[in-house]
Write a protein that binds this DNA or RNA. Structure first.
Lengths: 231, 231
DNA sequence: CGCGTTGTTGAATCGGTTCAAACATTGTGG
DNA sequence: CCACAATGTTTGAACCGATTCAACAACGCG
């Protein structure tokens, strides 16, 4: 019966990844582990492709997206530094991974998984965290009103180090950067982009947030108050 | 861009569970593995409780449910024979597991997980399958209309051996049993129970299904046609 | 500086919810 | 086994939140 506020998987266990992490500069050198980059809107892997690699985000943000045949889109997962993606049930990726902003990540051959059993424990933790996050998100999309959904997302971003521009201070205000367009926020929350706009404008009118002029910049005036809007 | 029809995790790997499975009659005997039962609407574990056990469904059906503080409910996962649940990110269950019908399952101490590393591979496969299923479900709830959502659920049930009453025959008809009330279907699909009713009635009027008099009994007249309703 | 992309706002519409009433099925105790 | 209570289902009518379509404004990249 408690509210669905599990630990955000965003920052889970970044330190337990084997090697390569501490050697950020090296593009290779360790067998099976390679550091790579992608620019805004570039894809890391595509739904349907053979799933030969795992990806661990070290910087930036990645969205997993799925499509209906007629083009309707849903962002099914939002991955931030520390998260791993690319795991698949069968042999193929079940979603497409797209960089939301310039993103750095480590690539690991799935074959490596079998050679390094201790990697399994990390993967299990990641999967558990993402499954819980997916369940929470399902509750959000399935049962919350538009305003509650938007606030959920903003609060999640405010909880992720990668999105924070100015840390929270006494009065509860915090400056963040939203690495998503309005349309992407809608596709993540199961709303139209116009509804996201309207909710954001309304929150601003009521003094809960201030929308910066640079796209994506946002000031949450009172995080606690925003959390109360969700219940 | 392909439609989100991954393998239903329902029947995944029932044969790889260690021991106990082949000794269905024995209520105990193997260290850490115990077979148990629950009746309709009884709970296996509760959100927030310390997560000391894993559960593997052998018969029946289990729903994982989450609540908002004001009582709004979402069924975040539907588990059928072969599925494992009870995995949690932290030390506590993040959802409540409720038997939808009389259900049999094996209970495994989580401590056992660390003693039997080969169990890890099974768990990883389960988690992967459930994560993919959660993503598909998110697409359904976030982007599909009421009729599409209801058909998604019916098609999923029609694909689960445990729900089939009379197997599919030439003309595409198949008799199933829905182990959920209309309200539960709504809570799973993010709809009100009335909307589920209306959609079901409409499907019947149009000859897609026939609703039996016994609660839960259903005849799908043409499965292929129903699948076309989803797109 | 200019054009394409992204964001904002309004008006009309619609799909789904809410509230309410009636009915059917299932389960229980006499 | 029947009667009755509890639970589950169906349908209607009014309402409302979110979508759609459309126009315009603000960014931001080249």
């Amino acid at each position: 019966m408690s509210p669905p506020s599990h630990a955000a998987p965003a920052l889970a266990h970044p330190q337990t990844w084997p090697r390569a992490v501490s050697r950020a500069g090296s593009p290779d050198g360790e067998p099976g582990v390679v550091r790579k980059q992608r620019g805004k809107r570039e894809t890391l892997f595509r739904q349907g492709d053979a799933a030969h690699y795992l990806f661990r985000i070290t910087e930036g943000a990645v969205a997993l997206e799925q499509f209906l045949e007629d083009g309707r889109r849903q962002l099914v997962e939002l991955l931030l530094p520390g998260n791993v993606c690319g795991l698949s049930a069968g042999g193929a990726y079940t979603a497409t991974g797209v960089a939301l902003v310039a993103t750095t990540f480590d690539v690991l051959g799935t074959a490596e998984l079998e050679r390094q059993p201790e990697l399994g424990a990390l993967i299990v933790r990641q999967l558990q965290g993402q499954l819980c996050a997916a369940h929470d998100h399902l509750l959000t999309v399935g049962r919350m009103a538009a305003q509650e959904r938007v606030c959920s997302l903003l609060i999640r971003l405010a909880g992720s180090a990668a999105c924070i521009r100015r840390p929270e201070c006494r009065n509860g205000s915090i400056a963040i950067h939203i690495p998503l367009t309005r349309g992407e926020m809608g596709d993540y929350l199961g709303l139209s982009l116009e509804t996201v706009c309207r909710v954001m404008s309304d929150l601003e009118r009521r003094g809960v947030i201030q929308i910066g002029q640079r796209h994506g910049d946002l000031l949450i005036n009172d995080l606690a108050r925003m959390k109360r809007l969700i219940n």
